[in-house]
Design a protein around this nucleic acid. Structure first.
Length: 218
DNA sequence: ATGACGATTTACT
DNA sequence: GTAAATCGTCATA
């Protein structure tokens, strides 16, 4: 046995395509407690526990990029099968990472909004440091928002459309145990005020006690 | 070709 | 609490 080999996660731990081929509501809730794992090209492992998610319900959902069946080069990966990554660029400076759900041509997804960092925290700090900032960030400021996650885990459009069930660079593993319903808060989604009645729908879930969520009590 | 707009984050009052 | 940063994308022309 080669004891010097890096301690990589067993392949069996990775969530398969079939796990994602469900409604985005189910997937959004079940993703809480799972780990998002990023393996960088230099071998560094950046990993955190998912503590906040939002479901986007497709053509009928005014807040979704696929509202009305809109299909462009930007959101093309939403139309791929469940288990595909959808990474988009917004506000001229941020990336956001989604897990596509359901079957092919059903453009539904779950936005990963916050993680509790567990592995590679020093690398996350370095990645989040960038310009402006001088002081080291608190652990709860590393992945407490969809743009922060992508900066900390170095996720960009080069990972858009990849298959999370097979790509070595990015995948999801199950949590030790699923968080109980009593520890989960269900609330309205963030930053979708333009979506009218759909902005009020409670399609966001987060671990109530976690200090790593992007916002509390709304 | 042009203009308006973000599934956000940060700094500042 | 407000506002700036910053630019790819999309609808309109």
């Amino acid at each position: 046995m080669n004891l010097t080999a890096p301690c990589l996660l067993p392949e069996v731990a990775r969530l398969p395509t079939s796990w994602f081929a469900r409604s985005p509501r189910e997937v959004a809730v079940d993703l809480l407690g799972c780990s998002l794992v990023r393996v960088r090209d230099d071998g560094a492992i950046l990993r955190g526990t998912i503590v906040e998610t939002e479901a986007y319900l497709g053509p009928r959902d005014r807040a979704a990029h696929s509202f009305g069946g809109r299909r462009t080069s930007r959101n093309e990966s939403m139309y791929a099968r469940g288990g595909t990554a959808y990474v988009y660029f917004t506000y001229g400076m941020h990336f956001c990472f989604n897990v596509v759900c359901g079957e092919i041509d059903d453009p539904v997804a779950v936005l990963i909004r916050a993680l509790e960092p567990t592995h590679g925290i020093a690398d996350m700090r370095a990645a989040r440091l960038s310009r402006r900032r001088a002081a080291p960030l608190q652990a709860s400021d590393l992945c407490s928002g969809p743009g922060k996650i992508c900066q900390a885990l170095q996720i960009d459009r080069s990972l858009d459309g990849i298959d999370l069930s097979s790509d070595p660079r990015l995948f999801v593993t199950p949590g030790a145990q699923q968080p109980g319903t009593s520890h989960i808060t269900n609330a309205a989604r963030v930053g979708v005020d333009y979506a009218g009645e759909w902005a009020k729908r409670k399609l966001r879930w987060y671990l109530t006690q976690s200090p790593h969520v992007s916002r509390r009590g709304c």
